[in-house]
Simulated scan of single mutants.
Amino acid sequence: MAPKGNIQWPPDLQILTDSPPTYVRAPQDSGIRGVEPAIRALLLENPRMPATVLAERVGWSGSPAWFRENVARIRPEYAPADPADRISYDPGDQAQCDLWFPEVRIPVGAGKARVLPVLVMVSSHSRFIMARMIPSRMTGDLLAGMWELLGGLGAVPRRLIWDNETGIGRRNSYAAGVAAFAGVLATRIVQVKPYDPESKGVVERANQFLETSFLPGRVFASPEDFNTQLGQWLPKANARLVRRTGARPTDLLAADKAAMLALPPVPPVTGFTARVRLPRDYYVRMGSNDYSVHPQAIGRFVDVSADLETVTISLDGRPVGTHLRSWGTGLTITDPDHVEAARALRKAFQTPHPVGETTGLRDLADYDRAFGVVLDDGQVA
């Protein structure tokens, strides 16, 4: 037997290359080629048909991921392109508005917590961000929030850009009070078309910025605490360098405001107003909460008004109830003085008059004299 070092391999087993052997799969037709004509026929009729529906229609039983990858390759040949232009914003022309819903539950009293909306407004030219948490997305609160933010800005953009928010309106049909609000401010509220996110891209990016830079790691004890922390953070956010403009929002704000409209001399109507007859239980409903009223107004019409912070009830211009507005739902807010007054009135109503009591009764001779009745002695009363 020859030594191992002298082994001679047969000629047919000699290694013909320096690289190790590799597995090479024999080429074969992909299963997608057999259904591609059917996919193209369906996309020709409906370019936006989902890949899952296409797979069902053509009877695909292979890998869903592989099918989606090939549909994504084919679809651009049939789906119309939707290019997005770069938009430039003139100073003072517009502010984009939106609602941001931070994923944190805010304590609102009575052991309850809610996810509350934050009204965000961004001046498109300077990218200056204004924001405030509000109690609801109803029209009265949206208008009150916009007026407060614009009042803090000290000027009014020539256009306020909104999507189809219900509290503002739908399909260019404004909600009650919105047109009057815009008229007092001499501005226009513009509702963008659906599926056109570029028209509100500035405020959408601001919402994302709030989500990732303001919210993490914070704890809020109340809506007031949220607004306090947000108010302290916004000056820092508006001093950041914006890559798109190459400047800080605070540096561009002066030129932006110079091209805006002045605030109106008379504030617009915001919040909520109603006129109701006060029932026996002396409570009125505002939003989804009940607020007590002084029981002296029972059975009479009272005027209810509310802003972002206060609910006021008045009778003939005289206040008969004032409460801090609750941001909760289904709550009953009671003034102890109203309960005490109701107890006193109920006691007086239920106390019977003593027998023989004549207080408040008029002498019948007064009526004789009033009608000229002749008495027995011949005298005319």
Rank of each mutant, 00 (worst) to 15 (best):
L185G: 03
V202G: 01
G140K: 02
S63M: 04
R33C: 03
T228V: 08
D196Q: 08
A55P: 01
A65Y: 07
D12F: 09
G59L: 04
A239T: 07
Q191H: 03
P135H: 06
A41L: 13
L308K: 04
L116V: 08
I161P: 01
V219Y: 04
T273G: 14
V24L: 10
R280L: 13
S314K: 07
D366N: 06
P279K: 09
P264G: 08
Q232R: 12
L43E: 05
P80E: 14
A113W: 06
R86W: 13
G217Q: 03
P10L: 14
M146V: 07
R127F: 10
S222C: 05
E309I: 05
D196E: 06
E204D: 14
T245D: 04
V266R: 10
L149I: 06
R346C: 02
A254N: 05
P80C: 09
T358D: 09
C97M: 12
F128V: 05
V219G: 01
I134Q: 02
P76N: 11
W147T: 00
E148S: 13
D12Q: 13
G328W: 06
P354W: 09
G217L: 07
L364G: 06
D368A: 14
L308F: 07
A79N: 00
D303R: 15
L278N: 02
L241I: 08
L42T: 00
A259Q: 14
V266W: 00
P102E: 06
M121V: 15
L253A: 10
T334D: 12
T270G: 04
D93C: 05
L160P: 04
V58Y: 09
R218A: 07
I134K: 00
V156A: 05
N289M: 06
Y174L: 14
T332E: 09
V192T: 15
A365M: 10
G5L: 11
N207Y: 02
A38Y: 02
